[in-house]
Design a protein around this nucleic acid. Structure first.
Length: 418
RNA sequence: GUGGCCGUAGCUCAAGAGUCAGAGCGCUUGGCUGUGAACCAGGCGAUCCAGGUGCGAGUCCCGGCGGUCACCCCA
C-alpha cells in the first residue's frame, strides 16, 4: 500500500510554512490596502459546474469522484465559477463595484513541473460591476503590480505586459482572414517570441498572412491601433507604474472568455507568473443569464510567485529573515534553579497571557544547554529564574547585555518589550 | 498525454562489479552542577520497490514507483 506523499502535493514544515504564511499575509494586506474584501467558497463542488464552461482536456484534469450519495463532485480547479455563482446570488443587493479577493487552494490533475503542482494556492482578485474602461482596468493592474512590489521587487524584477482581445480581430478582418481561424492565429502570436521565425512565418503563410506584416504590427505602438490601450497606459503612468508596465500585442491569453484588456506578469526569466483581464460575458454564461455583470480580474499562484521571489536574492533573503522571526519565541525562560521552576512557570504563563511568545525547558537542563537552546531557537531574550528569586535576570541574547528585574509580570514584560 | 535526466542517512555528497557502504552538516549524550561559541569523545541514521544477469550488484539490464526539467496544456 502506498502511503507516500501524492505526486504534485506538498507538505509544509514549520520553516517553509512560515515563509508561505508571510507571503499570504502580505497578499492579504496589499489587497486590503486596495479596498478589496476577502471571500471564500467550498473546496468541493458539483463536477457539472466545471463541465459547463469547457470540456475536453480541462475536464480530464479535474480531481473528480462520485460521493457516497451518488453525486458527481470535483475538487475546485479554479475559483471563477464559484465566484460567479456567489456574486450572482447577491449582486442585486450589493453596491457596485464589487472588489473581492480570495486566497484559496485549488486542485488540478496535471504533470508537475516548474511552477506547477497538483495542489496550489491562488490569489484571485476581481472587480465586478464597472464597465470596460481604463480606470477600472488600471485599478486591477495596479493591485497586481503592488503584490511583487510589497516584497521589494521593482522594474527589472518583473514586468506587466498588457494587450487587448480586440486588437487582433481588427487586424485579421482588415486582411480578409476567416474569423473562424482567429484562435489558430492567436496561438501563433502567443509563441512568436519562443518559436523560430521560419516556423512562425510558415504558419502565418498558411493563414494567408505575411510574417513581416505581422512583425511590423507587433513593433508599432498598440495604442495607435487601439486608443483605449493608450488611455490605460496613461492611467497606469499616473499610478507610478510606468516603469513596470508595457503594451505588448503578443499577450493573448488562451482563454476564450476574455473580452477586452488582457495582461500577464512576467518574471526576469520571461516566465508568466500571473495573468488576467476583462471578462464581461462570463458571469452571464456561468449563471445562465441570472446575472450579467462586467468583470475584470486576475489570479496569481503561490508556486510561481515563490519562483519570482527566489529570482531576487534581496527579496528572498528578506522573506527568509521574516520567516525566521515568525518562528522564534521572543523569550526563552532559563530555569537555573529547579526549586524555582513553579515560580518561573507562573511568570511565563503570565507573559504568554499578555501575548508574548515564551519557551522554556520541560525538564531539568543544564544552564549552558538552556542558553544554547535559546540561541538556536532564535529567542530575543532570556529570562533567568534562579536563586535570586523574586529577582530575575533579563538578558538580550544578541548583545549579551543583562539586567536584573523584579520577577513580576509587568516588570518583565516591559523589559522584553523593547 | 510525450520525452530527457535523476533516485545512497533528515540535508549535501562519496563508494572502479569485489571485505563490514563512508564523510560533512544535522540530531543526541557526555566532557561542562548559574551563561550561549569553539573544541573533544561517544551515540542515532541510508542503498525507493520487485525481478534478471553475474561467483559477487549501490554500481549492469527490465518493470514499477518517486523526483526533476522540457513539450502539450494551462480554468
Amino acid at each position: 500500500m502506498n502511503t507516500q506523499l501524492l505526486t504534485g502535493f506538498q507538505e509544509w514544515h514549520p520553516a517553509e510554512f512560515a515563509a508561505r504564511r508571510r507571503v499570504f499575509e502580505t497578499w492579504r494586506r496589499v489587497c486590503r490596502a486596495h479596498a478589496f474584501v476577502e471571500y471564500d467558497g467550498p473546496v468541493l463542488e458539483p463536477a457539472a459546474l466545471y463541465r459547463k464552461k469547457s470540456g475536453g482536456e480541462l475536464v480530464g484534469q479535474l480531481f473528480a469522484f462520485t460521493d457516497q450519495g451518488g453525486e458527481e463532485v470535483a475538487l475546485r480547479p479554479e475559483m471563477t465559477p464559484t465566484l460567479a455563482r456567489m456574486v450572482a446570488a447577491r449582486q442585486a443587493q450589493m453596491r457596485k463595484p464589487l472588489k473581492w479577493f480570495s486566497i484559496a487552494p485549488f486542485f488540478r490533475y496535471e504533470r508537475p513541473q516548474k511552477g506547477r503542482r497538483r495542489e496550489f494556492t491562488q490569489l484571485n482578485c476581481d472587480l465586478f460591476g464597472e464597465a470596460a474602461g481604463p480606470i477600472a482596468d488600471a485599478e486591477v493592474i495596479a493591485l497586481a503590480a503592488a503584490l511583487p512590489r510589497a516584497f521589494g521587487l521593482g522594474a527589472g524584477d518583473f514586468t506587466i505586459r498588457i494587450s487587448d482581445r480586440s486588437l487582433w480581430p481588427a487586424f485579421l478582418a482588415a486582411r480578409g482572414v476567416d474569423v473562424a481561424r482567429t484562435d489558430e492565429f492567436l496561438a501563433v502570436v502567443d509563441k512568436v517570441e519562443r518559436a523560430p521565425a521560419v516556423e512562425t512565418d510558415a504558419k502565418l503563410a498558411a493563414l494567408g498572412l505575411d510574417g513581416s506584416d505581422v512583425r511590423a504590427f507587433l513593433a508599432a505602438d498598440p495604442a495607435a491601433a487601439l486608443p483605449s490601450l493608450g488611455a490605460l497606459r496613461e492611467e497606469l503612468g499616473a499610478r507610478g507604474l510606468g516603469d513596470v508596465v508595457r503594451l505588448d500585442p503578443t499577450i493573448v491569453r488562451g482563454l476564450a472568455y476574455y473580452t477586452g484588456m488582457v495582461f500577464e506578469i512576467f518574471g526576469p526569466t520571461g516566465r508568466a507568473v500571473a495573468g488576467g483581464g476583462r471578462y464581461d460575458g462570463l458571469v452571464a454564461t456561468l449563471t445562465d443569464g441570472a446575472a450579467n455583470l462586467p468583470a475584470v480580474g486576475f489570479a496569481i499562484g503561490d508556486v510561481t510567485f515563490a519562483d519570482l521571489l527566489r529570482a531576487s536574492p534581496v527579496a528572498s533573503a528578506r522573506l527568509a529573515a521574516a520567516a525566521r522571526e515568525d518562528l522564534a519565541p521572543r523569550v526563552y525562560g532559563v530555569i537555573a534553579d529547579e526549586t524555582r521552576r513553579a515560580d518561573g512557570v507562573r511568570l511565563f504563563a503570565a507573559l504568554r497571557a499578555a501575548g508574548a511568545s515564551v519557551e522554556y525547558p520541560l525538564g531539568p537542563m543544564k544552564v549552558g544547554k538552556q542558553f544554547g537552546a535559546a540561541e538556536q531557537l532564535g529567542a530575543r531574550f532570556a529570562v533567568v529564574i534562579g536563586g535570586e528569586w523574586p529577582e530575575v535576570k533579563v538578558k538580550t541574547l544578541a548583545t549579551r547585555e543583562e539586567q536584573a528585574v523584579q520577577g513580576m509580570p509587568e516588570a518583565v514584560l516591559a523589559a522584553v518589550s523593547q
